[in-house]
Amino acid sequence: MTERDRQDVKVLQIRQAAKTLFLRHGFERVSTASLAKEAGVSKETLYSRYPSKEAVLADVLEHLVSAGRADAGAVESLRDRADLDGALRRLARELSDELMQREYIELARIVIAETPRLPHVGETFRASVPGRAFRATTELLLAGQRAGLVADVDPTAAARMFVGPLVVHALLNVLLVAPREGAPPAPRMDVDAHVDLFLTAISRERS
């Protein structure tokens, strides 16, 4: 979506209504009519912002996990190992924090439940959430290679190695754990140890 869309009051209303209804009823049981009613907009207004209910779901997911937060300037200005180290740690912390959000996990449950009947829902989730994380990581690694900081490795495979453990941690510690009243918060991943190991694997030591 464009910056103008992000500031559009109607878009904000629709996004919030969609999140509320999807979490309450699941994806399939929410009609565009009920979504428009909850958002306080007409169906015409809804369709002028989103071509389909799937597009609304994609937007909700994208705003729960925004792995591409690091701006392009930060990526392009990599000069040394410290810049790369800092960029990877920021990216890992942002992604880890957002993957551990209870709202995101509950939407992930909905997507998993709906995918056998509606494969496109799973495809939307994969493209909107993990896909963004992989793209952001790949772009950062390519910038590192241009700066001579990252070894001649396959950036796509390396991005999977970086993002995968963060996703698995959320899967094992939040998604597969039933929420209980008064339960302690899920353990946080040791992001610094993860980034240290990753840097050891992909860095090109400069003489």
Rank of each mutant, 00 (worst) to 15 (best):
I110N: 07
K19Q: 13
E76A: 15
S31W: 06
D97E: 15
A143E: 02
N173V: 09
S48R: 15
S128T: 15
A170H: 01
R135F: 05
L172F: 06
S128E: 12
D152K: 05
A183K: 06
P130M: 08
G73L: 14
S207R: 14
F162I: 11
S128W: 07
A67R: 01
A33W: 15
H169E: 08
P184L: 08
A108I: 01
G148L: 10
L91I: 02
A159N: 03
Q13V: 02
R90V: 15
Q7P: 01
A36D: 00
L107G: 01
R6G: 14
V9P: 09
G68P: 02
F134K: 02
F27G: 04
R102C: 00
A70H: 00
D152V: 06
H120N: 04
R81P: 00
E139H: 10
G26T: 15
Y50K: 08
F198N: 00
G144R: 07
L35V: 05
S48D: 05
G164C: 07
R49F: 07
T45Q: 09
G131R: 06
S34G: 02
P185G: 14
K10L: 12
L61Y: 04
D190V: 11
E62I: 04
V121L: 09
P155M: 11
N173G: 12
A159D: 02
Y47S: 08
M161L: 14
K43H: 08
A201N: 07
R89F: 10
E54C: 01
D154G: 10
L61D: 05
A186W: 03
S77C: 11
V11I: 09
A136T: 03
V56M: 05
Q7A: 12
R90N: 11
V168E: 13
F198R: 04
H169M: 05
V60E: 01
A113Q: 13
T45R: 06
A108D: 02
L199R: 11
R102H: 10
E106R: 13
P179L: 06
T32E: 08
F198H: 07
A87N: 10
E38I: 05
P165S: 10
S77Q: 14
L61F: 06
Q101L: 13
A183H: 09
L141D: 13
A70T: 15
H194S: 07
R69L: 11
V150I: 10
T115L: 02
